[in-house]
Computed example of a mutant assay.
Amino acid sequence: MFIARVTGSVVATQKVGSMTGHKLLVVEPYRLEEKKRGSLVPTGRTFIAVDPLGSGEGDYVLICQGSSARLTPETKDLPIDAVVIGLVDSVHIEKTNVYSRNDS
């Protein structure tokens, strides 16, 4: 599981039948800034994730990847590798608030 920021969406009009109606997002994983450990920074990678929760561009989300992505009731029969499993409200590291949804 990791934190990612929603940077876009994907529209695919032709896809396998089981994927019809599922929202696809472009997400970029974030990590804790290494030296000061006071902020989240992008990793430079991107993934496509199914979003059953309705998140939007700019939101920070929790992503589950690999076979675990198919363990939710919404995704158990889908051919996916990544799913949004939560919307991030805040991140605290060593008593420091490094992200708050209310401050965005």
Rank of each mutant, 00 (worst) to 15 (best):
F2V: 05
F2R: 10
I3A: 06
I3W: 08
I3T: 11
A4E: 12
A4Q: 13
R5S: 11
R5E: 15
V6K: 06
V6D: 04
G8V: 05
G8C: 08
G8I: 05
S9T: 14
S9I: 12
V10W: 10
V10N: 04
V10Y: 12
V11I: 15
V11Q: 15
A12Y: 02
A12H: 02
Q14A: 13
Q14H: 09
Q14D: 05
Q14R: 14
V16T: 13
V16M: 01
G17I: 00
G17W: 03
S18F: 02
S18L: 06
S18Q: 15
M19W: 01
G21L: 00
H22I: 01
K23N: 06
L24K: 09
L24I: 01
V26E: 04
V27G: 00
E28G: 06
P29L: 01
P29R: 13
E33H: 08
E33N: 14
E34I: 10
E34Y: 13
K35V: 13
K35S: 10
R37G: 09
G38I: 05
G38Q: 13
S39L: 08
L40G: 03
P42E: 09
T43A: 03
G44Y: 03
R45F: 11
R45K: 15
R45C: 05
R45E: 15
R45S: 13
T46R: 01
F47W: 13
I48P: 06
A49E: 02
V50T: 09
D51R: 03
D51E: 06
D51M: 02
D51G: 03
L53C: 10
L53V: 07
G54F: 05
S55N: 13
S55L: 06
G56R: 11
G56V: 08
G58P: 10
V61H: 07
V61Y: 03
L62D: 09
I63Q: 07
C64W: 12
G66W: 01
G66V: 04
S67F: 07
S68P: 00
A69F: 12
R70P: 01
L71V: 02
T72N: 07
T72Q: 13
T72P: 08
T72E: 14
P73L: 12
K76Y: 05
D77S: 10
D77F: 00
L78F: 05
L78E: 06
L78V: 11
P79N: 03
P79R: 03
I80V: 04
D81M: 02
D81R: 08
D81A: 06
D81S: 11
A82I: 09
V83F: 05
V84A: 10
V84K: 08
L87V: 15
V88H: 09
V88S: 09
S90C: 06
V91H: 10
V91W: 12
V91C: 10
E94R: 14
K95S: 11
T96E: 09
N97W: 05
V98C: 00
V98K: 02
Y99E: 04
Y99A: 06
S100I: 00
R101S: 15
R101D: 07
R101P: 11
R101H: 14
N102Y: 05
N102G: 07
D103A: 15
